[in-house]
Nucleic acid binder design. Structure first.
Length: 262
DNA sequence: ACCTCCCTGGCC
DNA sequence: GGCCAGGGAGGT
């Protein structure tokens, strides 16, 4: 995308523009005429610096998808809430049935007040050292699972991969963050890499609801690789005990009572 | 540091 | 017909 310019932008759902006050016209007017200077990812946020000091920030939520193509398909797919026509003929379409995702455009001042400010180091590109992770978890009493979802200690894990990483590391998700010792934290950092690399290789985890799909519309294939997520009531692949499910921070949390005692 | 809210497709 | 799933922001 770098170097391309936004010729025309249409935002057709106010919720997609909710970080600009729900005003589609703000997103449209700020993007039109701007040139893309880069496209980066931090955790689950897409961050694209533009000229004139603006930054486009997007999040896919649960069901968001960017489709990049040309204008040959003039009828956008259902639940298309954002379309951008670039100066070289490329058309970018944002499809998001559940509208948990968003597209925003911030100036320098606004950028400092967004959720990006609170993001920790990226889980995949620049994971924290065990010392840094220990520091950010020190004295925290919230369950380690909740702190992984917070995106503060480390950014990029959602509910599925947080459960899977804690399983591989042998950590009870209910353990207060500050009570996770150095050895399990080392295992956690290694497990995060294993879980994410496997998931990426498999094209991500599409569940039965098919909320998440690859950009070309295919389902990701990682579901069969999960050890605990969605397997409550089934035997653990490692020890045979029954996978349990509890609610932490209003999120279902799956773990093996046999393997995750730390 | 917690709770609630948003939203839709898929499933019971 | 009703419930559930999830990420993040906002409020208490």
């Amino acid at each position: 995308m770098t170097g391309r310019r936004f010729d025309k932008v249409e935002v057709t759902h106010p919720r997609t523009a909710r970080h600009n006050g729900g005003e589609a016209s703000i997103v449209e007017n700020r993007l039109q005429g701007r040139t893309v200077k880069g496209v980066n990812r931090h955790g689950k946020f897409l961050v694209a610096p533009l000229d004139k000091g603006f930054t486009m920030v997007a999040h896919l939520g649960m069901s968001g998808r960017f489709i990049v193509g040309d204008d040959s398909q003039s009828v956008p797919p259902p639940h298309s809430h954002f379309r951008a026509w670039m100066d070289d003929g490329v058309v970018i379409t944002f499809v998001d049935p559940r509208t948990f995702g968003f597209v925003a455009v911030f100036d320098e001042v606004e950028l400092e007040t967004t959720g990006l400010r609170r993001l920790g180091p990226d889980a995949w590109e620049s994971p924290p050292t065990v010392e840094a992770l220990r520091l950010s978890l020190a004295k925290r009493t919230a369950p380690i699972k909740a702190l992984l979802l917070d995106q503060g200690p480390v950014a990029g894990l959602g509910n599925i991969y947080a459960d899977e990483a804690l399983f591989l590391a042998g950590i009870d998700p209910r353990t207060p963050g500050g009570e996770v010792d150095e050895a399990p934290l080392e295992r956690l950092l290694a497990s995060i890499q294993v879980v994410l690399s496997g998931a990426i290789d498999n094209g991500g985890t599409s569940l039965d609801d098919l909320a998440y799909l690859l950009p070309d519309g295919r389902a990701g294939d990682n579901l069969s690789q999960l050890h605990v997520y969605g397997r409550d009531g089934e035997p653990c692949h490692v020890c045979g005990e029954t996978i349990d499910k509890v609610i932490i921070r209003a999120r279902s949390t799956h773990f093996c009572p046999g393997c995750q005692s730390g």
